[in-house]
């Protein structure tokens, strides 16, 4: 996986204002710190709902969402926290959801796999593998009918490209030149199975070619590479040039679900995990920004402090929030 360890270069910074770089750093750090915290809270049995942690993949959500406008739509999966945070979802409302409280973003009915923030363009996350890919095609279709310049993003894993609906969605989006970006986060695994056990040609980006759609494989642990590639694809989509498939090579550090590291089960080697941890997307960005004097030590400390406070506040909010009333179980089956 050589392409995932190339150093971040000044070339990639071109045209990105320093404030945006800081925002990118802060978003990645926020996702990392929230997820580490959640891992801890699961271990302490404070959080019960199954959580699929995003640790190790922060650069993908951050790079893509930073390149989007608030009104653009993003659809997420079972591994939803990173997309939600990067798109600007409130950590308070997410934490309350994970705690099963009525103040949660889904009133405690959805849990970790079903978080939503319609006001910042996240209509929802689905735990059915590939389930949201056609939904993102649908919002892109709506945008193109309304001609409002909106762009849709479908986030999905490599496992989702095993499903037929992935191919149907690509075909239709390409056919109608819809304003959508397909973001495949190839973390090499679908639950216990390596991609080589599931697909003979694991180069997911190449699948775009058969639909005459651009398909690009990038280093998903280099946030600036993700940002630049996403920005170009988004611009194309906005200008009526149709969809792009971006395959972002990355890795989930923890097990498929929950906080454990998943190295002792014979599913993946310690060396493999260590290689990827060594190529930590957050560390790579931080080292680069410090080296190039884009981020000072004091700015770094300030950001970290701010993020930490936000998380602590969110947890406090969640814990102080009431559980849903039992009668809530019957509500909202239909909009009245």
């Amino acid at each position: 996986m050589k392409q995932c360890s190339n150093p971040i270069t000044m070339e990639l910074v071109k045209g990105i204002p320093t404030t945006v770089l800081w925002k990118i750093y802060m978003t990645m750090l926020k996702i990392r710190m929230v997820e580490e915290k959640i891992a801890d809270l699961i271990t302490r049995k404070e959080i019960i709902c199954p959580c699929h942690l995003y640790i190790g993949q922060e650069a993908v959500a951050t790079g893509v969402c930073t390149a989007l406008e608030n009104n653009d739509y993003v659809f997420s999966t079972h591994r939803s926290h990173g997309h939600y945070i990067a798109k600007g979802g409130s950590i308070k409302l997410m934490m309350a959801e994970l705690y099963g409280r009525v103040t949660g973003c889904s009133r405690g009915r959805g849990g970790s796999m079903h978080i939503t923030s319609p006001l910042v363009g996240l209509p929802g996350s689905s735990a059915i593998v590939a389930g949201t890919i056609p939904l993102a095609v649908g919002t892109a279709l709506a945008f193109s009918i309304k001609k409002n310049g909106g762009v849709s993003v479908a986030f999905f894993g490599d496992g989702a490209t095993d499903e037929g609906v992935f191919y149907e969605s690509l075909n239709f989006a390409a056919l109608k030149k819809l304003p959508i970006i397909f973001i495949c986060e190839n973390n090499l695994y679908s639950t216990h199975m390596h991609i080589s056990a599931r697909q003979l040609n694991g180069n997911i980006y190449k699948k775009a070619q058969i639909f005459k759609m651009p398909g690009i494989q990038i280093d998903g642990n280099n946030v600036l590479e993700v940002f630049q590639a996403a920005s170009e694809a988004i611009e194309d989509a906005r200008n009526g040039k149709g969809p792009t498939l971006l395959e972002c090579m990355t890795y989930r550090w923890r097990g498929h679900v929950g906080p454990n590291w998943d190295i002792d089960k014979g599913l993946r080697s310690k060396e493999e995990v260590e290689w990827w941890v060594d190529n930590c997307p957050l560390k790579r960005l931080e080292e680069f920004l410090l080296k190039e004097n884009i981020l000072s030590e004091s700015k770094k400390k300030q950001i970290s402090k701010q993020v930490n406070e936000e998380i602590e506040e969110a947890i406090e909010f969640a814990k102080e929030s009431p559980f849903p009333d039992k009668s809530e179980v019957l509500n909202d089956v239909f909009k009245s």
Partner: peptide, 16 residues
């Protein structure tokens, strides 16, 4: 089951 989807929160699962 009541005619609703399954809720997440344990409090609701308990009645569901």
């Amino acid at each position: 089951l009541p005619d609703t989807p399954a809720p997440a929160s344990s409090v609701l699962e308990e009645v569901y």
